[in-house]
């Protein structure tokens, strides 16, 4: 059973091909890491999936229904690389309510969803705060809450752990692990991808190069190096340590 189906996706702008015939099938509930060097087409892929960009050719369907560029698709959410661009409302509450209000939901329904989304992301106490008074990590979680409040089936995360301190990053990782939605995460933070994904797709030069188990794809040194990446530390044999039974003293 597929939730998202991408068939032979091409995107060219303005003369340069960015996506060159990408095809992908995604099942519900999967958490998929999307890795690749800069310029590979990851962000463009995400933007075409949400309908922000119109593909030059190819087909994208969500639950069998085609995605039309320029239309509002509340069933797909995109968490931007820079949350600052995404939090454009005067207060945290208003920003999280933006999506649900545009979905035409009743005031009570909006209230419920916003409260729930803020509670899940731990941001409820900040609901009247202005966005520019938030820290980077807080902005990130509020942006996520804003997407969550629309209750999408599919959520795309673009570089979610960039610029986060260790604590905020850990919070984010645990949050993603707990999430029940189908998730696609584009990231250079390969350790995070390893922790949260059940499947990894390597994209380079507009093509899908590899698609499979995270340890296999990301543990393949030749493959990773060939596409401007490296194996994450925890997949390098000499660094991997057993957790328990480690005694320093006799």
């Amino acid at each position: 059973m597929t939730i998202l189906s991408i068939q032979d996706l091409h995107f060219t702008y303005p003369e340069t091909p960015v996506l060159r015939g990408l095809s992908l099938e995604i099942n519900p509930g999967q958490h998929i890491g999307v890795i690749g060097p800069n310029g590979a087409g990851k962000t463009t892929l995400f933007h075409t999936i949400c309908g922000v960009l119109k593909p030059t050719s190819g087909r994208i369907t969500l639950d069998g229904e085609p995605i039309k560029a320029g239309r509002f698709h509340p069933r797909i959410g995109l968490v931007f690389q820079y949350p600052d661009d995404q939090l454009f409302s005067p207060s945290v509450w208003d920003d999280v309510a933006f999506g649900p209000l545009n979905m035409g939901l009743s005031a009570d329904s909006v209230q419920e969803r916003v409260t729930a989304a803020l509670a899940e992301t731990g941001m409820l106490a900040l609901k009247e705060r202005a966005p520019h008074h938030l820290s980077g990590g807080q902005k990130r979680m509020v942006a996520i809450a804003g997407i969550r409040a629309m209750q999408p089936e599919l959520v795309l995360y673009d570089e979610p752990s960039a610029n986060l301190d260790m604590r905020a990053r850990r919070q984010l990782i645990e949050f993603i692990k707990r999430s029940a939605e189908t998730i696609l995460i584009s990231s250079h933070d390969l350790e995070m991808v390893l922790e949260v994904s059940s499947r990894v797709i390597l994209i380079d030069d507009g093509h899908i190069i590899a698609d499979g188990d995270p340890k296999e794809v990301m543990g393949n040194e030749t493959l990773m190096k060939a596409h401007g990446l490296e194996r994450p530390h925890s997949l390098r044999p000499h660094v991997h340590l057993p957790d328990a039974d480690f005694h320093l003293h006799d």
Partner: peptide, 8 residues
Amino acid sequence: KAMVLRGY
């Protein structure tokens, strides 16, 4: 883009 994505 962010506004349109959430239905502006």
